[in-house]
Design a protein around this nucleic acid. Structure first.
Length: 488
RNA sequence: GGUACCUUGGCCGAGUGGUUAGGCACCGGUCUGCAAAACCGCAUACGGCGGUUCGAUUCCGCCAGGUACCUCCA
């Protein structure tokens, strides 16, 4: 594989060249949603970030197995491995079977992802469907001596693990201090230390979501599913593990500990974390209650939104910032993205209609290389987009008859635009006319040709009437040098 | 309190030890019957104070402000 893709590895805190464990295959695991509520803007970020990576790795020629899980059990309401299961709570409140809640929100998540043109992963395993694997994984950790049973639950022994390995290597946390400060606080708990985390929890009698295990009727701890499912589908060692920065600790730290304890080796080579989306400078999240769901964006049904924003606008907005930067949401910023995207997509449509000349007076060389270079620099999509906007100027110049382009340059430009806009950035034409039939389009063309004739005869009354009435119906009419363009 | 990070022109947002990011908005111009679109031009920005350097927005230190994680969160 001839490339020099660099990605930022949270483990080393620097950009590293991506070299897969296996020659031509890449294994990639990304933490998916806990399905107890609608996906919000924050959920779109990792989905889109790793969608870009998924697409780009495939573009480089890798066969990628992309696993993104659905958390439908084990994710507890609050800390200290107590509290109610999120799914079970929602089910109780809505008087539904837990699996009804899971199905409902999974369907809605899929719908939102599809709207955002996020490709489905290769495998989307549910935690509840992998209880056996999680029990087996827990056994391995017990056998290795890094866990203990207490009152029917099993806990990970962080202190013991840390003596042999390094708990805190991902998040940079100093575990010795954590052990020091928490020593006296324990005692009452089933856990030896408050830093210990549950691998298996015994279910209280009223708890509906429960499975049999050697230790008790209960359910797996939250961190367990990713270790169990990741290694099941990607092997004991795989290339990339992704997720939001907020999962770094404790979730990913615990995952590393579990896998290392059970297997005696590092499972993941590259850890990647996307940054958060903020709103008024603060993280958008469930706990703060300051989130806006994707559906609210699509419908405009939220006090902070000036209008509805299309899925592609959301996608473009996210891609205009680097995935490791925070990006501050505002209606104003989204409107700016919307306009920029429209201009880019109009230019892309226009590109298809350009006619070639004998030679080029515009510079198209190097666009492909520059875009590739930006992608290879830790997926720098904002730079890719800026290059595309630069190239857009050439397209418009040719379109206006102020410049010419040769056949080969035109073909190259079309090819690069398709590759980056459609295939890699995953931006789709959302205009209402795409997909409608030819007869309809021809009818509009006919009307506008009549208008053109009227214009040529200086019959402004007729030409304006046609334009105004079409405009009133929602069409956008643009006169060009020797004709017209329209869209709905 | 611990740890990490951030502070770029009206807004969003890249990036770099000395050369234009890009988008949106504004203003001026070209084009046009008008309009729209398009094109051209237009901002010489990098929190403050020191230091290193021939030269720092970019490196170092201090200060100010902000954020994230340390409990569930993408």
């Amino acid at each position: 594989m001839e490339h020099k893709l660099y990605i930022y590895n949270t483990l080393s805190r620097k950009k590293e060249q991506f070299i897969p464990i296996h020659e031509d295959k890449v294994g990639m695991y990304v933490c998916g949603p806990t399905v107890y509520g609608d996906a919000h803007l924050g959920h779109a970020r990792p989905a889109i970030t790793f969608d870009i990576l998924f697409r780009y790795l495939q573009h480089l020629g890798y066969k990628v197995r992309y696993v993104r899980n659905i958390t439908d059990v084990g994710h507890l309401e609050n800390d200290a491995d107590s509290g109610e299961d999120k799914i079970a709570k929602k089910a109780r409140l809505d008087q539904l079977e837990p699996m009804e809640v899971v199905q409902y929100y999974t369907n809605r998540y899929h719908k939102a992802m599809e709207a955002l043109n996020v490709l489905p992963p290769s495998i989307e395993p549910h935690a509840s469907g992998h209880i056996m694997e999680q029990i087996d994984f827990t056994k391995k950790i017990l056998d290795a001596g890094f866990a203990y049973e207490s009152e029917g639950s099993v806990y990970f022994d962080v202190e013991k693990y840390n003596k042999k390995y390094h708990y805190g290597k991902l998040s940079g946390r100093n575990i010795d201090e954590m052990l020091e400060t928490t020593r006296e606080l324990d005692g009452q708990s089933e856990k030896r230390r408050s830093v210990d985390f549950a691998l298996w929890k015994k279910a209280a009698p009223e708890h509906i979501m429960r499975w049999k295990s050697p230790w008790s009727d209960g359910f797996p701890g939250w961190h367990m599913e990713c270790s169990a499912m990741g290694t099941k589908y990607l092997g004991e060692e795989f290339d990339i593990h992704g997720g939001g920065m907020d999962l770094m600790f404790p979730h990913h730290e615990c995952e590393i500990a579990q896998s290392t304890a059970a297997l005696g080796k590092e499972t993941v080579k590259y850890w990647m974390h996307n940054n958060m989306i903020t709103i008024n400078g603060q993280k958008m999240g469930k706990s703060l209650g300051n989130f806006i769901t994707l559906e609210q964006f699509f419908t405009g049904n939220h006090p902070l939104l000036s209008k509805a924003f299309s899925p592609m606008t959301i996608r473009f907005f996210i891609l205009q910032a680097h995935y490791r930067s925070t990006v501050d949401f505002s209606s104003e910023a989204l409107e700016a993205s919307e306009k920029g995207l429209e201009r880019l997509m109009d230019g892309y449509a226009r590109l298809q209609k350009l006619t070639a000349s004998d030679n080029s007076t515009v510079e198209t060389d190097g666009l492909r290389a520059k875009c590739e270079e930006a992608m290879q620099d830790d997926l720098n999509t904002p730079i890719v987009i800026s290059h595309l906007f630069e190239a857009l100027k050439s397209i418009n110049l040719v379109h206006d008859g102020k410049a010419t382009i040769s056949k080969s340059d035109l073909d190259e430009l079309k090819s690069v635009f398709k590759l980056f806009i459609e295939d890699l950035l995953g931006l789709q034409d959302e205009s209402a006319i795409s997909g409608t039939n030819d007869a309809y389009k021809k009818a509009i063309d006919l009307l506008l040709n009549i208008r053109l004739e009227a214009k040529q005869n200086k019959n402004w009354a007729t030409s304006d009437k046609i334009r105004n009435e079409l405009t009133a119906l929602g069409f956008e009419i643009k006169d060009t040098k020797d004709g017209f363009e329209w869209k709905l």
